[in-house]
Amino acid sequence: MSIELFVVVMFLSAIGAGMLGSLVGLGGGILIVPILTIGFGVDIHLAIGASIISVIATSSGAAAAFVRDHMTNIRVAMLLELATSFGAVSGAIIAAWLNPKLLFFLFGGILLFSVFPMIKKLGEEIPRGVVNDEWADKLRLDSYYPDRKHGVVHYNVTRVPLGFVMMYVAGVVSGLLGIGSGALKVLAMDTAMRLPIKVSSATSNFMIGVTAAASSGIYFWRGDIVPEIAAPVALGVLAGATLGARLLVRFRSETIRRIFIVVLVIVAVQMFLKGLGVVA
């Protein structure tokens, strides 16, 4: 394939990745990485470099709108960024010594692991009966967000320490794989801390940029961020994320959850096949 065509395909894929990523709180890396490795046979290290760009572009592009519209909980985000940035640096340091096949396997496992709790919560529009824990009170983490259907929705935050530990793990994974590990972040906020799914998604979106930025320097100076891949990815994702951010406020929570589940299953299976060596 010619390089010109490759660049155009990457640009178009990146628009889709940015849209999806901004809707479900992921960085779009989960689409960009398989497209590059499975679709074009690109070296996994370069694919990870591209996904770092995708994550930061999705995060910064969508968060501008989410923060303005009060979908993002900045206090929760800052607290949890403490955990993820520690994790990200630890992960990036050990990444160079790991076998790519193992990385794929790990990647697939993490995504598949995150599907089941999501399916269980399908009919839940807004979490009920959540009471602030001691940390949420002390740090004033509870807040509210505007919902098209339900008006202003107040929400409390619980099990902050558990969320914090899950976020450290999410940080390690993102440092290892160059993904913002938005799936794990959404999971921690949704399952452990019981934030509404839209708030979890928007807050995850806000955070993934910081997690990715913490390890981005390492990839950039190592030469893993190739301009021919990164430029179309950055421009496409920025366009897609800006569009996706407008959609999140309109969609029902259940719709967001469904999209999230479908994306996770497809990519998890792809990654497992790659890890097993079934797909080259």
Binding site: S60, G209, A213, P227, A231, A234
Partner: peptide, 20 residues
């Protein structure tokens, strides 16, 4: 061109840093 793209990418990577 490569260097100019790299500068743009660095600005993108620095955006979350600036935000924090």
């Amino acid at each position: 061109a490569i260097a100019i793209i790299q500068v743009g990418l660095l600005i993108l990577l620095l955006t979350p840093v600036t935000r924090v």
